[in-house]
């Protein structure tokens, strides 16, 4: 029994708790991609850099607050800076839409042109971000680091394995839950949300019933900007902020959106957790787990790792491939063209 509890603590510490946090971050990112896809009908390659931009804006505001000696006590100051960061990111999304995407919308260009345009924007933003904050690692997480320390957990339960929960992890999960609830309330109960869903379902019918497309697009960008900034900041709080990681995050985010069914918000959330947990469980070293579960003397020598940690991004790709081969519409049947 103790062995089993130890295994549980071990898995929680190294896979389940980090997975919940990472999954929430991916889910928030994938929600942004999926909303843009549903309404504007293209895969937004610039989303990763938008997240990065949002995180950068939040970091800059955080630094300004810290310089004035303002803090949130045990919570990271970044939470206080987040609303300003969100506002800046929304501004960025609206400006890029006005300057870049609107022209192609009026021209009714093919989705693949949008794709290239978003790639161009991705690099423009990437350059801008590196120009402003530099390419290096930025740590901006302050406040208490852990809400549950491994030592405290061991003392509490008397187990050999510790379980640590970082403040940033719990903040991530709580924020994600709140954001998702607000988003679904918005999409299902408010007029603007309903018009967005109508527009996404059937553009012509929505136009006939008097929905203003420009307004729908604007609302979409506002939500996308807010989601991107929150996702980017949470990721930065949890790991650390490095501009180049956001290009690599693009693949898991797209995979999450596609696995759940692109264009489907519920699918994006599910997809985020599917990707996060598979990434962690596939690259998890099962040596200690087996040592507890197998009779003594049978413990393996190697790490018993299915795939080395360096390949964690390959996991999301493999899941993407499996989904594309078996069910291209995704688990929750998103839209297909």
């Amino acid at each position: 029994m103790t062995d089993f509890l130890n295994v549980l603590a071990l898995l929680s510490n190294f896979a389940i708790v980090p997975g919940l946090a990472y999954g929430s971050q991916l889910a928030l990112g994938a929600l942004g991609v999926t909303l843009v896809y549903g309404v504007l009908r293209f895969s937004n390659f610039a989303h990763g850099e938008t997240m990065s931009f949002g995180a950068m804006a939040t970091i800059l505001v955080t630094w300004a607050l810290q310089a004035r000696g303002i803090s949130l006590g045990p919570l990271p100051t970044a939470l206080l800076a987040l609303p300003v960061g969100i506002a800046i990111t929304i501004g960025l999304c609206l400006v890029t839409d006005r300057l870049v995407y609107r022209y192609y919308r009026q021209e009714k260009t093919q989705p693949v042109t949008y794709l290239i345009v978003s790639v161009g924007l991705m690099f423009l933003l990437g350059g801008l971000i590196r120009f402003i904050i530099g390419p290096n690692d930025q740590v901006f997480n302050d406040g208490t680091r852990f809400i549950l320390k491994a030592g405290t957990f061991k003392a509490m339960t008397g187990l050999d394995q510790g379980l640590a929960i970082k403040t940033s992890q719990s903040i991530t999960v709580v924020t994600a839950v709140i954001i998702v609830c607000v988003l679904f309330w918005f999409l299902n109960k408010t007029r603007a949300g309903k018009s967005m869903r109508a527009y996404s379902d059937n553009e012509d019918l929505a136009l006939l019933s008097g929905i203003n497309p420009e307004r729908v697009v604007m609302v979409t960008w506002i939500i996308t900007g807010a989601l991107a900034c929150i996702a980017g900041t949470l990721y930065g709080l949890d790991k650390s902020y490095k501009p180049f990681t956001f290009l690599q995050l693009l693949l898991p985010i797209f995979a999450s959106a596609i696995v759940g069914g692109i264009g489907n918000p519920f699918g994006a959330i599910a997809g985020g957790f599917v990707i996060a947990f598979s990434e962690l469980f596939v690259t998890f070293a099962y040596k200690k787990v087996l040592a507890y579960l197998l009779p003594s003397g049978f413990a393996p020598d190697g790490l018993v790792q299915l795939l080395s940690t360096d390949y964690k991004f390959a996991v999301s790709f493999m899941i993407l491939v499996i989904v594309l081969l078996i069910k291209p519409t995704g688990l929750f049947s998103g839209r297909t063209l």
């Binding site: 293209f42 895969s43 390659f45 989705p111 693949v112 794709l115 690599q248 693009l250 693949l251 797209f254 995979a255 596609i258 360096d310 390949y311 991004f313 390959a314 999301s316 790709f317 993407l320 491939v321 594309l324 081969l325 291209p328 297909t336 063209l337």
Partner: peptide, 24 residues
């Protein structure tokens, strides 16, 4: 073989993925 014949975006995403994995 995997990504063609589906939506055009899937090829872009799949190639993005495979190129990262090749480098890893």
């Amino acid at each position: 073989k995997i990504a063609l014949g589906l939506r055009s975006d899937y090829l872009a995403i799949a190639t993005l993925g495979i190129s990262e994995i090749i480098i890893y």
